[in-house]
Lab assay of single mutants.
Amino acid sequence: EMEYEEITLERGNSGLGFSIAGGTDNPHIGDDPSIFITKIIPGGAAAQDGRLRVNDSILFVNEVDVREVTHSAAVEALKEAGSIVRLYVMRRKP
């Protein structure tokens, strides 16, 4: 069973403070093209906020749908998102 969360982060000097993997051209798990959080960087915006978790998958960055995009398109969406970034994420319920 999945749960969904909308997380708004303010981009810090060091960016959003997380790493991603995945994409249609580089699936992270099997042939699932989802964009997954692979690392939360200590002291970064995501770590300070505390809600984003490793293995969360990002569905939307602001209004941009990143469910079926290449890795570089997801990176671009995050880069272009401005200083306030709304992430709509999905994760397995614990």
Rank of each mutant, 00 (worst) to 15 (best):
R91W: 03
F18C: 05
K93P: 04
D32M: 08
T24A: 11
D32G: 08
D25V: 07
K39T: 14
M2V: 02
A21S: 07
K39Q: 15
L16K: 03
I58K: 00
A74L: 05
K79D: 01
L78K: 01
I29H: 12
G82W: 03
L9T: 02
S14Y: 08
V85P: 09
R51T: 14
N13P: 06
A73V: 09
S34C: 07
T38H: 05
F60D: 15
I7A: 03
G22F: 04
E10L: 10
R11F: 07
E5G: 03
A73S: 10
F36A: 08
T8E: 09
H28V: 13
G43P: 08
I29L: 12
L59Y: 09
I7N: 01
S72W: 09
D49G: 08
D25E: 08
G17V: 00
G15R: 15
G43E: 13
A77G: 12
V66L: 11
T38M: 10
L87I: 13
D49N: 11
A21W: 12
E10A: 09
P33K: 11
V66K: 01
L16Y: 11
E5A: 10
R51Q: 15
A21E: 12
M2R: 02
G50M: 11
N13F: 04
L16F: 05
R67Q: 08
L78Y: 02
T24K: 04
T8A: 03
I40R: 07
D32K: 10
V64A: 08
M2F: 04
T8R: 04
P27V: 07
F60N: 15
N62I: 00
I84G: 13
V75W: 07
G15I: 05
E10I: 07
A45Y: 15
I37P: 02
E10Q: 04
S14P: 05
F36Q: 08
R92W: 09
I7L: 13
L87G: 00
K93V: 03
I40P: 01
T70S: 10
V54I: 08
G44D: 05
V66A: 11
T24V: 10
G15L: 12
E76K: 08
L59M: 13
S34I: 15
D56L: 00
I84Y: 14
G12D: 04
R11K: 11
S72A: 14
Q48I: 04
I29T: 13
D56A: 03
N13C: 03
V66Y: 03
A46H: 01
G23T: 06
P94A: 05
E68V: 06
P42Q: 10
S83N: 15
S14C: 04
Y88D: 04
I41Q: 09
I41E: 08
K79G: 01
V75S: 10
L78G: 01
G50A: 08
P42L: 12
I84D: 12
R51V: 11
P33T: 10
I84A: 13
A77H: 04
I41T: 08
I37C: 04
F18I: 09
G15K: 15
D65T: 12
G50P: 04
R86H: 14
G50F: 06
V61I: 10
A47V: 09
F36N: 15
H28T: 05
N62C: 10
K93L: 02
I20A: 07
R92D: 08
P33G: 10
R67N: 15
S72D: 02
V75N: 15
S57R: 06
A21H: 06
T24D: 04
R67L: 03
A45L: 13
G44E: 07
N26R: 10
F36H: 10
I35S: 03
S14W: 13
E76N: 07
T70H: 07
P27L: 05
I37Y: 00
E5Y: 12
E63G: 08
A45V: 07
E5D: 11
L52S: 09
V89D: 00
R53N: 03
D56P: 00
E6L: 01
R86C: 13
V64W: 13
Q48S: 08
G82V: 05
A21D: 12
E76A: 07
S34R: 06
K39Y: 07
Y88A: 03
V69R: 07
E76D: 03
F18Y: 06
R11C: 03
A21G: 11
A45S: 14
Y4F: 03
G22R: 06
N55T: 15
A73Y: 10
L16E: 15
E68H: 03
V54D: 15
P94L: 05
A46T: 10
E10S: 09
R51I: 15
I41L: 10
A73Q: 10
I29D: 14
R51G: 12
R86S: 11
E1G: 02
I20P: 02
F18P: 00
P27N: 03
D56Y: 05
S72G: 07
L9R: 00
E1A: 02
V69C: 07
S72C: 11
G44L: 07
T24H: 04
F60Y: 13
T38S: 13
E1M: 02
S19G: 05
D31A: 06
F60T: 15
N26W: 12
E1K: 15
V89W: 01
E10P: 10
A74C: 09
S57L: 07
V64N: 05
K39P: 01
E1N: 15
M90G: 14
R92G: 14
G17Y: 02
F36E: 13
P33L: 07
H28F: 05
D25A: 14
S34D: 08
D65M: 14
E5M: 15
F60A: 12
V69K: 12
L78A: 02
Y4N: 07
L59F: 10
E3N: 14
R67P: 00
G50D: 09
T70P: 12
H71I: 09
N62W: 05
G43N: 10
I58E: 00
R92Q: 04
E68L: 08
